[in-house]
Design a protein around this nucleic acid. Sequence first.
DNA 1: TGAAATGTTGGGGCG
DNA 2: ACGCCCCAACATTTC
Length: 495
Amino acid sequence: MRLPGAACQGGAPFAGGEVGLGVALPAEERVRALHWFRSDLRLRDNVALAEAAARGERLVCAFVLDDRLLGESGAPARIRFLLDCLGRLDADLRRRGQRLVVRHGDPCREIPRLLEQARAGLLTFDRDYAPFARTRDATISRAAEKQGVEVLDCKDRVIFEGSELRTQQGTPYRVFTPFKNAWWRRYREEQPGPIGPIRLPPPVGGLAAGSLPDAAALGVAGDATEIPVGGEEAARRRLRSFLAGPVARYREDRDLPALDGTSRLSPYLRLGAISARTCVDAALELAQAEPKAEPGVRSWVEELVWRDFYHAVLSDNPHVLRRNFRPEFDRVRWNEDEAGFAAWCEGRTGFPIVDAGMRQLARTGWMHNRVRMIVASFLTKDLLVDWRRGERFFYAKLVDGDPASNNGGWQWAASTGTDAQPWFRIFNPVTQGERFDPKGVYVRRFVPELAKVSARFVHKPWESPAPPADYPAPILDHASRRLEALRRFEVVRSG
DNA sequence: TGAAATGTTGGGGCG
DNA sequence: ACGCCCCAACATTTC
């Protein structure tokens, strides 16, 4: 267990805390605190909330619905998931004598106003690494400090930040493997387990609670995506069931999209319904008790290291959201293939593994990671469409859509990123399908037109003696597009 | 967290 | 018995 103050940069350390959490400061040192919930929608193992609780004589728990973000993302499934998580967070707070105070509007206006209304002396929130958020948070912190409010901006959504892991030269890591090695080294030193239970101070009286809008009010009621149940309890259940079985086979099963071999925790991690710390700690504890599970646990934890890596990359290189990480790739010419892009979006390219993935995304707001790589390779190397268009589409559809990981994944697949797939490595959608979905169970699940095609032809139905009449013929020839991609990317060598 | 082309090796058929 | 060819299997190189 770790004291919460240790995680907060720029804030006073946890002054009262020789013991664990929940040990309040002496009354005279306590203030009215406002915890601003963002992507940390949980009451357990929440660093910034723990700070507010430990230092607060009274506490306001607030959430601001920012229409700019809601509207801009155009992501109805994720908004519905967010509303579900917020409703459950509010219910959890009410069970503990608290409540979620909801405001609608620009946080730069709403947070200072709430601080004033609550006569708060402390503002806490979890640190966000996206450029837009950093600008916003800096503005709000300045305003709060001008009001005489202390601000604690706490590391919470990642285990280690980029600034905590530097190369020998003191520069940010650009390659995953050394980053990962440094991450493990630091993890062994620090052992950053989850923090203990948080005892919440009573609410500040006289503040309008506001109310959560329903899906209709946010214009997402018509969305039919089959999203998971939100909230902290669902997240913890999911972690428990994953650790109780699938994780032991994770290293072998994670690449097989027909199986439920992955944790499916990404939507919960995205909104902080569960913390990465809790996940890693529980997994490593299992590996300790159950050595057979060790390889699976290790490879699963490494996926969370990728998550830290991409947050670090974004934090140190904010330009990646708009531009190629590696500028030499600016010379690559992309296609304006509207018809091809539409076929890709709608899952009717005629390549079963690609179409199954895109239809899984449309139906469930989630896609198996192996298939994400395949469809991303198809868009960027077969259709030769700019990766940013794929990134935007994913961001609009994914329930787990996160700027850092989404951008990292796309720049990896497009070969334009840090430690990316070398540009001459081009996935063959048929080979990938045959290798990772040998019996076609996954593709048939999402592409019912293929139900009657034998396993032999299920990834290349055009070669079947009786191709299904209702499934499209392939929209392109992979072999020739591959050669075209190699020609297009050639310009990164010299110019 | 590739795939395809090219090179090498070795066994077997066969004149 | 021997050389030659074919080709699968595997390894290496190239993109």
